[in-house]
């Protein structure tokens, strides 16, 4: 079976983790791994794996437009604002891993099919990928007055992009809870914890619900957990949903597959697995049409 060619811009934690996952894909093949820094850890690793690399970032794709059909942009929100129109002009199906929110949000378990018609799809944030599905599940069985998520990640797993974009992270996560999760009023908080050994990515979802039917909520959360585990095997509810101190509280942990960073960095997997799932679906449809 042929594979659809992809390019990755950004050779940090997210870009490199994507590369590792795409190597295992039956329908995607990474043709170019592009950054600015020729000595980044990610680029060195890609070179050792025999992947074509460049330190010309997006310019390489502009100069070699035939190198790929799908582009993953794992740079920063600021850079993506510059990249997005270029990639649109080149006709690339673009998966934006930054919180720039140029294109429509996609959280595959909720709205995968809508993403495939777009030219630019935004992957929200790691916290958004982890919590929007549960917000969506809960809001379908309960009248949610307010919902809040707290994402806690290990310092070591937060690269420069995450740190530089901390405002965009909270803003974009909140927006996705409303737009995709169907919540009226929402808030997102992010916390970095430097403890050693590093902590596993953890998210808590608090919901204010009048007279919650806890049986229904538990069932909805359990079913959604199983759906997410189909593409993020390390996703697991560790607390609740439990009604305590007037709020419905659910905590989840995401253990990574340890592709680039060790298993604690589930925040990489939750967003890279989602992006790969969208790209694979797109690739299959594309090849289906070609046949």
């Amino acid at each position: 079976m042929d594979k659809v060619k992809v390019g990755i811009i950004g050779t940090g934690n997210i870009g490199t983790d994507l590369l590792m996952k795409i190597r295992r894909s039956k329908v995607l093949k990474c043709e170019i791994f592009a950054g600015w820094n020729p000595d980044s850890k990610g680029i060195q690793l890609a070179r050792r794996m025999g992947i074509a690399t460049t330190s010309e970032s997006i310019r390489y794709i502009q100069n070699n437009p035939g190198c790929c059909d799908i582009v993953f942009d794992a740079t920063s929100a600021k850079s993506h604002l510059y990249h997005a129109p270029i990639l649109k002009e080149l006709g690339k199906f673009t998966l934006d891993m930054t919180p720039a929110h140029v294109g429509k949000f996609c959280v595959p378990v909720v709205n995968l099919s809508e993403a495939l018609d777009q030219d630019n799809v935004n992957l929200v944030t790691c916290g958004g990928q982890a919590t929007v599905p549960l917000a969506y599940a809960i809001s379908r069985v309960a009248q949610v007055e307010y919902l809040e998520v707290v994402a806690t990640i290990a310092s070591k797993s937060a690269g420069k992009g995450t740190r530089d974009n901390i405002d965009e992270f909270t803003q974009t996560t909140k927006d996705a809870l409303i737009e995709v999760g169907g919540i009226k009023r929402a808030k997102a908080i992010i916390v970095l914890n430097p403890a050693e050994p590093p902590i596993t990515m953890r998210n808590t979802i608090y919901a204010i619900i009048n007279n919650p039917d806890m049986g229904k909520i538990r069932q909805a959360v359990g079913e959604m957990e199983q759906e997410i585990r189909k593409y993020v095997p390390g996703y697991r509810v560790i607390l609740g949903p439990v009604l305590e101190n007037g709020r419905v509280t659910t905590s989840i942990e995401v253990t990574g597959s340890g592709d680039f960073l060790p298993q604690y960095a589930g925040n990489l997997d939750i967003i890279t697995c989602a992006a790969v799932r969208i790209a694979e679906k797109y690739a299959m449809e594309k090849m289906g049409r070609m046949e």
Binding site: V150, T152, N193, A195, R202, S251
Partner: peptide
């Protein structure tokens, strides 16, 4: 568990 500020959950 070496929790930090903001980890009330």
């Amino acid at each position: 568990q070496k929790v930090v500020a903001g980890q009330e959950d």
